[in-house]
Design a protein around this nucleic acid. Structure first.
Length: 303
RNA sequence: GGUGCCAUAGCUCAGUCGGUAGAGCAACGGACUGAAAAUCCGUGUGUCCCCGGUUCGAUUCCUGGUGGCACCA
């Protein structure tokens, strides 16, 4: 039987964790987390990592394996997942990958173009330029270095422009030359499962989950990370809002309210990301039997 | 029971000296290749409480309801 990676995705708060534990038990396998914030061991409460009970019951990978100080990326995730998969497939025919980080999931499923590494000081320099001279100066540079990308990039999004510029400068060639969009071949099958809920239901769960996080000590977890708040990993929902509270910019109540709102908006962005992926088969969380049946059928048909 | 005030977007409210309406928040839609829980773009979504009346035309003025609030009993 061919090896298969079963990807379970869905917006934040939809109930991925609980179902993934059920699925892993049922199919007797392990879980790869594809959540770009659950990687960090300093961030537990605010990222809703699986409970210790769940972690003890099922073998998890890529949970709390990094420090917020570490650099990480979708590309590194692709590399690291492809590195451990052969060993997992030696033990199990199917492996679960659960998460909500669309780009990370795509990197594993489709691959991501090979683009040279960049010296961090180049990005720092460009970021400084952006802050001091504004986005127009970045546009001018990009138009010169990579007119092709300039023509199609969102010229109001400084992160996209900085990314392109740092590659141009670092590689000495236009960024657009590296973007092949070719899909990588994988030597395993992939089944994508999406979990969905009615919007009202999802938002209610998100709001409630934030209250639970606060009860469980999110404020304290965040306070301990205050000095590191400039790090990218901490530019995350649930953390940035509390940092603003600690700095006196907003009230505690406002911070909690904003965590709820920003979580809802994040969920919407996730839904948008997956809306065009026709390979995803969507299920409601209560359709667990159908879901298990679908996976079992897929395993038998996929060759 | 009486008197007064109010009723407009999901919420809080503004406004139209009569020509079918707009702010904030919330919400909705979209983009996305090593920062992605990031970053960026777009969109008012409305029986102006209800039934009548006056008027060419009523969300606006008038009668009567209904609901809410306040005060007096």
């Amino acid at each position: 039987m061919r090896n298969i990676l079963i990807v379970v995705l869905g917006p934040t708060g939809v109930g991925k964790t609980d179902i993934s534990i059920e699925l892993a038990s049922h199919f007797d396998t392990e879980i790869i987390s594809a959540d770009s914030r659950q990687f960090y061991r300093e961030m537990s409460i605010g990222t809703a990592v699986p409970s210790d009970i769940q972690l003890n019951k099922i073998n998890h990978h890529f949970i709390k394996c990094l420090s917020v100080k570490d650099y990480y990326s979708a590309s590194l995730f692709e590399r690291d997942v492809l590195k451990i998969l052969p060993e997992l497939f030696r033990r199990k025919n199917i492996v679960l990958m659960i998460g909500g980080s669309g780009m990370y999931i795509d990197a594993v499923c489709n691959g991501i173009d090979d683009i040279p590494d960049v010296d961090p000081t180049i990005r720092e320099k460009l970021t400084k330029q952006y802050k001091e001279e504004g986005i127009e100066s970045l546009r001018v540079a990009l138009k010169l270095l990579d007119p092709e990308y300039y023509a199609k990039v969102d010229l109001r999004n400084h992160k996209r422009i900085i990314r392109a510029l740092e590659i141009c400068e670092s590689a000495g060639r236009p960024y657009s030359l590296f973007l092949t969009k070719n899909k990588s071949e994988r030597n395993f099958g992939i089944i994508k499962i999406g979990l969905e809920r009615e919007r009202d239901d999802l938002y209610e769960r998100i709001n409630h989950r934030v209250d639970i996080m606060v009860e469980h000590g999110l404020e304290e977890e965040t306070r301990q990370l205050f000095d590191l708040r400039g790090l990218n990993a901490l530019n995350s929902v649930g953390y940035r809002e509390f940092f603003d509270f600690f700095e006196g910019k907003i009230s505690r109540e406002k911070a909690i309210e904003l965590i709820k709102r920003n979580s809802r908006r994040y969920a919407k962005r996730q839904i948008t990301w997956w809306s065009k992926d026709k390979d995803i088969r969507w299920f409601k969380p209560e359709e667990e039997k159908e879901l298990i049946g679908y996976i079992a059928d897929s395993i038998n048909t996929d060759n």
